[in-house]
Design a protein around this nucleic acid. Sequence first.
DNA 1: GTAAGATGGTCAACGTGGTTGACGAAATAG
DNA 2: CTATTTCGTCAACCACGTTGACCATCTTAC
Lengths: 158, 158
Amino acid sequence: MATSDPARPGFQLPLLLLAGFRTLIDDLHAELARQGHPELRPLHGFVLQAVGVHGTTATELGQRLGISKQAAGKTVDRLVAVGYLERVYDPSDARRRLVRVTEHGADGLRRSAETFDRLREQWAEALGEERVAALEDDLRTMASANWFRLDVPGWFGG
Amino acid sequence: MATSDPARPGFQLPLLLLAGFRTLIDDLHAELARQGHPELRPLHGFVLQAVGVHGTTATELGQRLGISKQAAGKTVDRLVAVGYLERVYDPSDARRRLVRVTEHGADGLRRSAETFDRLREQWAEALGEERVAALEDDLRTMASANWFRLDVPGWFGG
DNA sequence: GTAAGATGGTCAACGTGGTTGACGAAATAG
DNA sequence: CTATTTCGTCAACCACGTTGACCATCTTAC
């Protein structure tokens, strides 16, 4: 069945994009594990980023990530358990539980940023800065703004 | 905390690669849903592809995908339940259960290939064929060959 | 030819990341 | 003061992965 041969032109593009992404993420987490963050998983970076400097609530976090407030709450539970997030009471609203990044979480975020910068430099050394920049430009043109939604069944659970 | 600002250079590259991938996959599955395959999930395409024309066993499928034979077996169960795969007995070895792509599965695979080809053409129309080809070349240079492993905890469960 | 080992499939228990529905407590609107 | 909305959580469930244990079968060695 040549019609679904992986060598077919159309197949290459998504596979290569995934491969590039996975390579960066795997390299990042190998480095983070070395730097004292072996617990940090790929998803956690998104969540920490979405919580942000000012903190949020589980409901708002869910909205930012495009998942339900219940899923956001459970994810926060796990990140709290490994020390990356903390929950505090909101004195101005007894229903709300503010979610904040801990110092340990901020450290992970800082090291992630530094490592990503270094990885991008490696790509620029191998391909040339112009080609990396062109690659980013082209992807900015083609990539939808909905990429950050995690709610596709079959990707991250259903 | 400017150190983890999403606008930082290093952050853009992985995000854009993911966005590009997600865009292609989301477009593909929107089209597949229109063409009679609303059940087909992103993961399923990998699995059908890994089963291949000649069929396999769950154990071998697990090795190809980099997951345990038990996980492969459960995934096959689900694909059998929605009609994309079938299990047959191997007359030459009573332990083995051959896994084969059904006609419905082959149809999904064919339509996936056609849709991916069409999406690549759309990228070539928007960016120019040379830039898409350059993008692919660059990713081939940088992307690790281990992309297809699904066993990273925190990506696909784990 | 039989005993020993390797292999294939499945069951069970569990972990992570999602879903929906229900519900109490607290804030807000009328 | 009552009605409604909002926040968080509980419970049940699904998809996708893990390890460990186990039986049945095929293969190998003696």
